[in-house]
């Protein structure tokens, strides 16, 4: 028997409820945003059609936009740099630890917590020592008083402080993904390699790393897309401040749309974000397909 032949009515009954809800709340909004982005509109007054003006203004006159793009890309780069480290830790755990679950599940704890908990926790840690901030108290205790600062209100330090929190939260996630990938490599391969004299770090180099590439790719994509979108943590911790020094594309969009009520302008930023996400996914996939072809 091949696939079931059922009347169109039945198919509609199975598919339409979900599809309609989904299309109405994901695709219609995106198209609606493309439309809105061609207007100058504050939500209350009349809409004024301005064509591509919002985009032109965004790319040429907006002093916040390009730094925000830079922060977004830096965010992505930092999150991806973490992954080789996670992979290496995962190979170490796999080789040296007999009961790895304890480590792996402990590292994973920050992953399951809400951005609000993580963000506010680190805000408290980053507080000045006089307000009970742990980091500054530790630095004071180590005699590094000159290093102490109010991490989130310091324009140069704030962005790095945020990168660090994201790295901290997702280390366990990437580590677990890689670790699962490594454990899925059949042990016969290692046994065969051992007979040929490839053991320990040599086995890592010639067996583990090449075989784990597909999983590595998934981690990279997750980190990249995640960091393009990671903005709720920034909203919780700094809201883009001080003085726009921690704005990323998404926070800029949010602040423009909801705080300044520039609906048209905010929509144009949102569309840029969508475009960047789509293009980035395609590029990363293409890059890794090449890498995989070269290796195999």
């Amino acid at each position: 028997m091949n696939a079931l032949k059922v009347p169109a009515r039945t198919i509609a009954l199975f598919v339409l409820p979900c599809l309609l809800l989904y299309v109405c709340l994901v695709f219609v909004p995106i198209f609606f945003s493309i439309y809105t982005s061609t207007f100058d509109w504050n939500g209350i007054g009349a809409k004024k059609f301005v064509g591509l003006d919002n985009y032109i203004r965004l790319f040429t006159k907006d002093a916040v936009f390009w730094p925000a793009v830079r922060h977004t890309l830096m965010f992505a780069v930092f999150s991806m740099v973490e992954i080789p480290f996670a992979l290496y830790i995962a190979t170490l755990i796999n080789r040296f630890v007999k009961k790895p679950n304890f480590f792996v599940t402990s590292y994973f704890v920050p992953v399951i917590l809400s951005v609000v908990i993580i963000g506010q926790l680190w805000k408290t840690i980053y507080n000045p020592a006089s307000l009970g901030g742990m980091l500054n108290q530790v630095l004071d205790g180590l005699g590094l008083h000159s290093w102490t600062r109010s991490w989130l209100s310091d324009k140069t330090a704030a962005m790095y402080a945020l990168y660090f929190v994201a790295l901290w939260q997702y280390l366990g996630y990437h580590l677990l993904i890689q670790f699962t990938g490594i454990q899925n490599i059949p042990s016969e391969i290692y046994e065969a390699a051992k007979i040929d004299g490839a053991d320990g770090f040599k086995a890592d180099r010639y067996i583990t790393f090449p075989l784990v590439v597909p999983i590595f790719k998934i981690s990279i994509i997750l980190a990249f897309i995640g960091s393009l979108q990671s903005f709720d943590m920034i909203m919780v911790m700094t809201g883009g401040g001080p003085g726009h020094s921690t704005d990323v594309i998404a926070t800029h969009m949010y602040n423009m749309s909801f705080l300044s009520s520039k609906f048209g302008y905010g929509s144009s930023i949102a569309m840029v974000l969508v475009a960047v996400c789509l293009v980035a996914t395609v590029i990363i996939n293409a890059l890794f397909n090449q890498v995989e072809r070269k290796i195999s």
Binding site: P29, T36, Q229, Y254, A270, C277
Partner: peptide, 19 residues
């Protein structure tokens, strides 16, 4: 359609959904 939707950043839909 569902697969494409997985690549759409959620926060881009906040404003239009509200409207």
């Amino acid at each position: 359609v569902f697969l494409i939707g997985m690549m759409v950043p959620v926060q881009a839909t906040l404003l239009p959904i509200m409207l």
